[in-house]
């Protein structure tokens, strides 16, 4: 009996039924499975190695440390803080440069820093500031989801001047650089 079988590539067995044994192994389903496994491995590898190192937390903390070191010398607030031109010369006094690479459409707008120095007892009485440097638009984006928004940290510390007058220094930093740290 020569029964002609119609076979479909998408059927369970692509090969005619009169070929037994290897038919099952060579069916397209085996290759579908290994393609799925391979695709999963490729996807996971690309995801792992394609994700950049996120160093924004480290960088933000380093910036706050640098500003703190700049404002306080031998345990006392530096004299320049009390000079009128401190705000305008702040970046120069603290050796800061907020320029960044021109890639990803950045225009030196990836940093924001806000500084205030108030009396320690009544922190609503400001001696300096609050004043800011950098891109002020970064300030309001902090509360949203971290991954797609700037990384923000605020830290404060107690300090005195040479006449032992007490102050509270507050530093707020917001750092974007999202394209190079998050994907």
């Amino acid at each position: 009996m020569n029964k002609i079988q119609k076979t479909n590539f998408f059927s369970y067995n692509f090969f005619p039924k009169n070929r037994r044994g290897t038919d099952k192994m060579l069916s397209m389903y085996w290759f579908v499975i290994i393609f799925i496994v391979a695709a999963a491995i490729v996807y996971m590898t690309a995801l792992f190695y394609g994700k950049p190192y996120d160093v924004r937390e480290l960088e933000t903390n380093l910036l706050i440390n640098k500003v703190s070191d700049c404002l306080v010398e031998n345990g006392y607030l530096i004299n320049e803080v009390f000079v009128e031109t401190f705000k305008s010369d702040f970046l120069e006094i603290c050796n800061l440069n907020f320029n960044v690479e021109g890639s990803h459409g950045w225009k030196n707008d990836q940093y924001y820093l806000e500084l205030s120095i108030s009396e320690f007892v009544d922190q609503s009485i400001f001696i300096i500031g609050p004043f800011s440097e950098g891109n002020i638009n970064l300030r309001d984006l902090c509360s949203n989801e971290l991954n797609n928004n700037p990384f923000c940290i605020e830290k404060g510390f107690y300090s005195i001047d040479k006449e032992n007058k007490e102050y509270f220094v507050k530093i707020f930093v917001s750092l974007r650089k999202t394209e190079k740290n998050v994907r």
Binding site: L63, K66, L91, N95, L96, N97, N99, V100, Q110
Partner: peptide
């Protein structure tokens, strides 16, 4: 690959 630093040195 390039990355910027803020320390003005």
């Amino acid at each position: 690959y390039s990355y910027s630093f803020f320390n003005d040195v």
